[in-house]
Simulated scan of single mutants.
Amino acid sequence: MPRPLPHRLLAEYLGSLLLAALVIGSGIAAQRLSPDDVGLQLLENAAATAVGLYALILVFGPVSGAHLNPAVSLADAVLGGLPWRDVPAYALAQVLGCVTGAVLANTMFDTAPISVSTTERATAAHGVSEVVATAGLLLVIFSLVRSNRAALVPSAVGAYIGAAYFFTSSTSFANPAITVGRVFSDTFAGIAPTSVPVYVLAQLVGVAVAVPLLRVLHPNPVATTAPVTEGQPR
């Protein structure tokens, strides 16, 4: 049986908070540890994000599905896993969690708790990258879920995001909530507010691309559960 909605929203909030703290905090640490090597900074940020995301999905997956991402919640609703009435609450919890996580990361590294990013990222290449990154993430998650291999999702998502840091020019945000959260940290992982609409629109396009592909690739899913439930139907 699904957990009560307040329990699931708490899991989404905490998971999103820790995700943002992980992404932004590891970016700050990388920038300080390797100040003269941007490639090494990206590698350190990607590695920390990949392994941390694996752990977060293991922790929060059995409670809420560990979406931590409005794009995942939206796709799950379209595919029949998450009730539509829960989508706005999930998205709000995810955005609030990511903003809080950004403030926490800034505080842990003794910078201003809130600092609006000045890093402009809105280019056509970045937009295409976010479509690819988001669609790919959804294909990874829901292909495994719909073929009854949900237990593999934590490791597969961590591996995919770690790789996507390098094969996309946008470094694979693939998540509207983390995109908003990263506005509030003018550090290595930040994004300027003016770039957010391009990223979020591209991520929604990624959802629109992934869902029809999933229906073609997996027309008769073995399981139609939320993304992560330790391989068991809810």
Rank of each mutant, 00 (worst) to 15 (best):
residue 53 L to K: 00
residue 83 P to Y: 12
residue 152 L to E: 12
residue 75 A to F: 11
residue 92 L to T: 14
residue 147 S to W: 10
residue 52 G to C: 11
residue 125 A to C: 00
residue 149 R to Q: 14
residue 109 F to R: 07
residue 118 T to F: 04
residue 90 Y to M: 10
residue 73 S to N: 06
residue 119 T to G: 01
residue 142 F to Y: 14
residue 65 G to C: 05
residue 155 S to K: 00
residue 54 Y to G: 02
residue 68 L to K: 00
residue 93 A to V: 10
residue 87 V to G: 08
residue 98 C to I: 04
residue 128 V to M: 14
residue 151 A to K: 09
residue 91 A to W: 06
residue 103 V to S: 02
residue 66 A to N: 04
residue 121 R to G: 02
residue 151 A to L: 13
residue 159 A to F: 14
residue 99 V to G: 04
residue 89 A to F: 15
residue 47 A to G: 11
residue 63 V to I: 15
residue 54 Y to C: 13
residue 134 T to C: 13
residue 127 G to A: 13
residue 128 V to L: 15
residue 101 G to D: 08
residue 94 Q to L: 14
residue 65 G to K: 04
residue 78 V to N: 00
residue 51 V to P: 01
residue 64 S to W: 10
residue 150 A to G: 15
residue 106 N to P: 02
residue 99 V to Q: 05
residue 56 L to C: 08
residue 154 P to T: 08
residue 92 L to H: 05
residue 109 F to G: 00
residue 127 G to H: 07
residue 130 E to P: 12
residue 145 V to E: 07
residue 110 D to E: 14
residue 142 F to I: 05
residue 89 A to L: 15
residue 93 A to R: 01
residue 78 V to P: 00
residue 92 L to P: 01
residue 81 G to H: 11
residue 88 P to Q: 09
residue 59 V to L: 13
residue 157 V to C: 06
residue 65 G to Y: 07
residue 118 T to P: 01
residue 64 S to K: 06
residue 104 L to F: 15
residue 112 A to M: 11
residue 154 P to R: 02
residue 90 Y to V: 12
residue 156 A to P: 07
residue 132 V to K: 03
residue 56 L to G: 06
residue 83 P to A: 07
residue 138 L to C: 09
residue 84 W to E: 00
residue 67 H to S: 10
residue 55 A to L: 15
residue 85 R to W: 15
residue 66 A to C: 12
residue 126 H to D: 11
residue 121 R to F: 10
residue 97 G to C: 12
residue 144 L to K: 06
residue 146 R to P: 11
residue 151 A to H: 12
residue 80 G to N: 05
residue 89 A to Y: 13
residue 108 M to T: 02
residue 141 I to M: 09
residue 53 L to W: 11
residue 69 N to I: 04
residue 149 R to P: 03
residue 123 T to D: 13
residue 48 A to Y: 12
residue 86 D to Y: 13
residue 64 S to F: 10
residue 46 A to N: 10
residue 107 T to V: 09
residue 92 L to Q: 04
residue 91 A to R: 00
residue 97 G to L: 13
residue 96 L to W: 12
residue 80 G to M: 12
residue 118 T to L: 10
residue 87 V to D: 05
residue 93 A to C: 11
residue 106 N to C: 11
residue 51 V to K: 01
residue 133 A to P: 06
residue 131 V to I: 15
residue 79 L to R: 06
residue 102 A to Y: 08
residue 122 A to C: 05
residue 100 T to Y: 10
residue 51 V to N: 00
residue 116 V to S: 05
residue 96 L to K: 05
residue 155 S to F: 15
residue 127 G to I: 01
residue 152 L to G: 00
residue 118 T to I: 03
